[in-house]
Amino acid sequence: MQKNEQLRILEALLFASPEPLNQSRINSVFKDDPPKLAELVKKLKEKYEKEKHGFEVRKVAGGYQFATCSEYSPWVRRLIQNQSKLKLSAAALESLAIVAYKQPLSRFEIESIRGVDCSGVLKTLLSRQLLKIAGRAEGPGRPLLYGTTREFLEHFGLDRISDLPRLREITELTAADENSDGGVRAPE
């Protein structure tokens, strides 16, 4: 198969894919001798950069998808009005942040950091599929453990959990210089 033809097939797949396209989907599409997705995407990106498009290929949640370039958002926004994406409450964001950096962890651990009951907000986050049950703890009562989902990564435009911004160290909170090293990284 010609290289250019492969590139056009990839373009078609990216256009049609309902979720970020990853290598395993490529493997199932091509069956024998599937091309390396990352390499193809690199070529496609180079091509787009040369030609200057209004959209680009971006990596999110371990796959690739088309997205409009941010400088054209004002125009697209005029086209797509009333697009009400789910807006998360402060309680939801706090709980998500705690789970994202400390997963897997139990409801009790989340509550001890937030200082309030979290059962309602966790239920909502589970039903919106931003969180999932990641198993049970070994300790007494074997409580459910929470973790983030692929939808979480997509919602925040992250490729992997380790791409989260670094969590500040306690010593940095009051320090004038916030650029020092030694912060906590999100789990891989």
Partner: peptide, 15 residues
């Protein structure tokens, strides 16, 4: 996270 979500919300994806 809120900032990330807002930035993400400005991009329109093929879905």
């Amino acid at each position: 996270l809120d900032i990330l979500a807002n930035e993400e919300n400005e991009l329109f994806k093929r879905t």
